[in-house]
Write a protein that binds this DNA or RNA. Structure first.
Lengths: 151, 151, 151, 151
DNA sequence: TTTT
DNA sequence: TTTT
């Protein structure tokens, strides 16, 4: 049956994006995102707990990552859980889980080098497809895509 | 700034979809969706609380609604909040809020008349754009769109 | 049936919170939150679209709003859609929709006046105890609650 | 910083829940949930893709799982990603990711053996008290909890 | 390995 | 006005 597999994260990058340019203008970026929760335990001590997520970002979003994100960047991410399974050299079944990113918003201020311009334009959303909330669903993945970014 | 405006609902239709075919192959469907929560109050009595939502569905999704949904249908819906504001005859500012649907999954069994066929294909997801989780982002809105539905 | 009614927003406050202290230590805050989406239209022009949301926040969360939020504050919000219906003086059915907030994260930097102090206290998450779908709707909000906030 | 780590799934159980009763009335259930997406590839062929998720459910929710869920059960799940890391016998860093469930709704019809009885009891929502981002992590799970379930 |  |  057609189900739902949705992940929503807000956190910070633990390292600069690792970007690979593949043949045919494909680009993939791997990001490490930390989400931290804080609470007080029974004794009233503040406890902090960090979860690290491996994000996989493709094409237009990967170009955005390459240009605008770096260690420490704060992001809102939507995506889905995606796992790879394989057998290791010992013949054990192995599994690795990552988040395939489908939509991104930078929560930092305006990206470096984007100074000047209209107030209120600091954070940018990006989508790996015709932006989910876009009236006209014409978006092109590919080399010329940056021209379609909304800024 | 680029923000987030996301709604996720699971509920049942209170009435058959109202579908309007507009010029230029545009179609819009209005749906009434009930989401019910239940809990026990302090006295231990079961309390049920229903919220009614006005959904607005366009084009391909509207055609799906027209064909497959009816009063009582159970849906998973993703969308965004969208309100209209205007002045009424008395000059008062008025506001009406609805949900613009961006993605749909039918949670009922197989749609009527869809018997036979592959097992496990009972619920269907639809998306008003290249399906969010689709590798290749080629989807065409328009008259021929039904051919692109994944079944 | 038990359904799902969930809203996720990221945006900025359009005004300072309006806070009312009610009898019995109840507190309610009303917030106006703007979520903005930006995209390019067919002609390539950047278009910006803002939706305004009325948020209703109770008790512990309302105290947090009162203390730390002001016009311009940037928030991540989870909640549910909740509408009031009534008849106006002309006997017309009226409906007003708002977001009942169940969880909040401030996305700004450290709140004013919170300089120095404990590490790890930059952005804060808050939660209005009995979550949406919790069986027993007995919230233990109250005067001593601030002591439980995680900072 | 306080971030967001949220997962929303709709899918079916691939096996009966595995339930362990621990000392001190703690209960944990492990569930295998399949989420399936379907789409047409470039050649127009219907493709189906299933992702398997390991869910971990505690206490009250685990008792609900034990009583009402079985292989094939259809669920709506909210939770967070949680991974364990360790070193295996070869000294390799290993990581296993699962979903810690915070809220559940059964999307099947009335649970077996629950025929007759109270109206409004078809699908049920359950919540594991201290939500993810709640300041005080004191859950009151325990033997008497079932009495608080909303049916 | 992030954030404050 | 839905659902069980």
């Amino acid at each position: 049956m057609a189900g739902v597999n949705k992940v929503i994260l807000i956190g910070n990058l633990g390292a600069d994006p690792e970007v690979k340019h593949l043949e045919g203008d494909k680009v993939v970026a791997n990001l490490r995102l930390a989400t931290t929760e804080a609470y007080k335990d029974r004794s009233g001590n503040r406890v902090e707990n960090t979860e690290w997520h491996d994000l996989e970002v493709w094409d237009g979003l990967a170009r955005v990552a390459e240009q605008y994100m770096k260690k420490g960047s704060k992001l809102y991410v939507e995506g889905k859980i995606k796992s790879d399974t394989w057998q290791d050299e010992q013949g054990n079944n192995r599994k690795r889980t990552k988040i395939r990113v489908l939509s991104l918003t930078m929560l930092d201020g305006r990206p470096d080098g984007q100074s000047g311009g209209s107030p209120g334009a600091s954070n940018q959303s990006y989508n790996n497809a015709p932006p989910q909330q876009m009236p006209s669903p014409t978006v092109s993945e590919g080399p010329g895509e940056e021209d379609d970014l909304p800024f």
